[in-house]
């Protein structure tokens, strides 16, 4: 049984956070999107059963409309297949195994406590890594599909590792009336990221939230739980500065969280 690894270079439509192309035999090539939108490489992830079945991979963009099949009127863009090099998937932090066991043991005997376990997991690593989710599901006897169903339903959970400092700009009604949209726009400009994204250096993650329960102090942002209140809408620069100043403190919090 031979596993085949291809590296391909292609331009394609975005599919979630990643791009996937297929050859017709059902082989899958996956790559991550770089900031420019161009894709460097991907790994073919299918174990081809036997030599007799291998055909030249005819790579079609995933998502080309039906009708392309059978070759009558193909709507796909041709893709250049480059050299076959194995590319390691980027490594993101995951929660240590025994810790997941700990979380699972804490919750698995309480019915329906998946969300609580996910809270525990996310508070450890800042997001819900796939590996950890798989392990958690395994230990709690919850199908992975259920975990993803839940994680993608609730705004609170993240599937990607966020930046170190999570800046939450409140877009609740009180804050909205006091101009929080402008504040957020300023932040986006300041950090050069869009809402919901992290800076490339993974230092900041900018997100919008709906009401932090301090509406009397609108508009406000919170950074890793610390609230900066009664801001002026044009003060985004100032907020970042204050974050910089408070960083040592936040850092300490961060570490205590990690302990």
């Amino acid at each position: 049984m031979t596993a085949i690894t291809y590296t391909v270079r292609y331009r394609l439509v975005q599919f979630g956070q990643s791009l996937v192309v297929t050859n017709r035999g059902g082989a899958w090539i996956r790559g991550e999107i770089s900031p420019e939108g161009a894709v460097e490489s991907g790994v073919l992830s299918r174990d081809w059963p036997c030599a007799a079945g291998v055909q030249t991979p005819e790579i079609l963009p995933w998502g080309a409309r039906p009708g392309k099949r059978g070759g009558r009127g193909t709507m796909s863009t041709p893709i250049e297949v480059a050299t076959a090099v194995k590319v390691a998937a980027p490594k993101a932090p995951a929660a240590p195994k025994d810790e997941i066991t700990l979380i699972a043991n804490k919750w698995k005997n309480k019915r329906g406590s998946l969300i609580m376990a996910l809270h525990d997991l996310q508070s450890r690593v800042g997001y819900v890594p796939r590996e950890s989710a798989m392990r958690l599901g395994h230990e709690m006897d919850v199908p992975l599909a259920r975990i993803y169903e839940v994680v993608t339903f609730y705004n609170y959970f993240k599937l990607e590792a966020p930046g170190k400092y999570v800046i939450s700009v409140c877009l609740g009604t009180a804050c909205h009336i006091k101009g929080s949209a402008e504040l957020l726009a300023g932040m986006e400009k300041e950090l050069k990221v869009r809402e919901g994204q992290s800076t490339p250096d993974k230092e900041y993650h900018l997100q919008a939230v709906r009401c932090l329960g301090c509406c009397g102090l609108a508009p406000l942002v919170s950074v890793n739980g610390k609230v900066y209140a009664k801001l002026k809408t044009n003060e985004s620069h100032h907020v970042i500065e204050r974050i910089q100043i408070d960083k040592p403190m936040a850092e300490a919090d961060h570490e205590s969280l990690a302990e």
Binding site: G16, T22, L144, A145, I147, T152, F153
Partner: peptide, 22 residues
């Protein structure tokens, strides 16, 4: 089997395998 599940919510809701994999 639990291959299919809903992904996301609201207008973005769609069916997919866990984690939007093929």
């Amino acid at each position: 089997v639990w291959a299919l599940s809903f992904l996301n919510r609201g207008f973005e809701t769609r069916i997919a395998a866990a984690g939007d994999i093929p």
